[in-house]
Amino acid sequence: MEFSVSLNQRVSLSASFSPAAKMLGVSGVSGAGKSSLLSALAGAEPSAKVNVDWGIDAARVGVVFQQPMLFPNLSVQDNLLLSKRYAKQGSIEFQKVVEGCEISELLQRPVTTLSGGEGQRVAIARALLNGPDILLLDEALSAIDITRRHRIYRFLSANAETGYFRCVYVSHDWQDLALFSDALLIIDKGRKQHSGMTQDVLNAVSVDELGSNPFALLEGEVTQTAEQSAHALQIVSIDNTPLFVNQCSVVDSRAKFVLYASDVSISIPAKDNSLESEQSSILNALCCEIKMINDSEAKTSGKVLLTLQAGNQCFYSRISVLSLSRLGLEKGQQVVARFKAL
């Protein structure tokens, strides 16, 4: 998948992505040109110069905007059926889409009575029923609550993986981008800032760009799914340590989850190195090494940012300067990172 887009002075970029990238996340600050880029890719910008190779001949491109743009003169069901009538052969079945987008109970409703999030779910379903080869989502899930949003992303991701379509989605939410994209494109002022496979881009993005609360994307092996366990949490093994995880995306028993710096606390391991000896409601404890201590904001905020490494994976912890000095933390020291089941 590769494209180059030039639209007036607003957008000018080209990017290419591996065929393995079924879900492409697009992000950038407000006004960076994300919507313009998607609009141009959708063919809705007559003045744009667009050169695109989706990797499919005569690709059908579906587009869903932040505002659902459901046809207000039709019911939810009639919106869906109209789309279905003009669908390509072999697109996803009606019932599967209705269940995946969680809109079974909305079918008979007039479009005008839907809430923002309900409308967005219906709009995504309508686009899917048309059988797009490429699905462009311009913050199309922004009004859906996080749990449901992640379920729908998982549904999209699973179908993209099956080969029904490829999805390009714009989001402001780093967690959504990190969890569900195979590749990322970060743009700024209409230009490409970073692009590539998700983990590579996240590594390339500086801590500052991730905002005031940086995060890391951790990956591990699922040893027990939420369905199998009695506590509705997945158990994911990282560096041979079992971790309890709530929000994650799972593909082929590999789980990805996002860990924010503010959610990680640090403790010094007990003399016997046993983690179970103390009792705490914080479920997860992971032995790791302090790779870096960033105290550039220590004066203004009283906080420092630690970069930690467990196995070959890095993540962050934001702690107070006071804790840093009380625990006497130093670079290279072995510590225990603790965080709740997220």
């Binding site: 063919g43 743009m69 046809f71 109209l82 003009y86 686009a127 048309n130």
Partner: peptide, 27 residues
């Protein structure tokens, strides 16, 4: 008439006649 209705309708491969009768005329 919001242009995005037409963009969406075209992306759903509605024929010009369908766009006229199902969308523009009722709206």
């Amino acid at each position: 008439l919001d242009n995005r209705y037409l963009t969406v309708a075209k992306s759903l491969h509605l024929t010009p006649l369908a766009i006229a009768t199902k969308l523009v005329l009722p709206l």
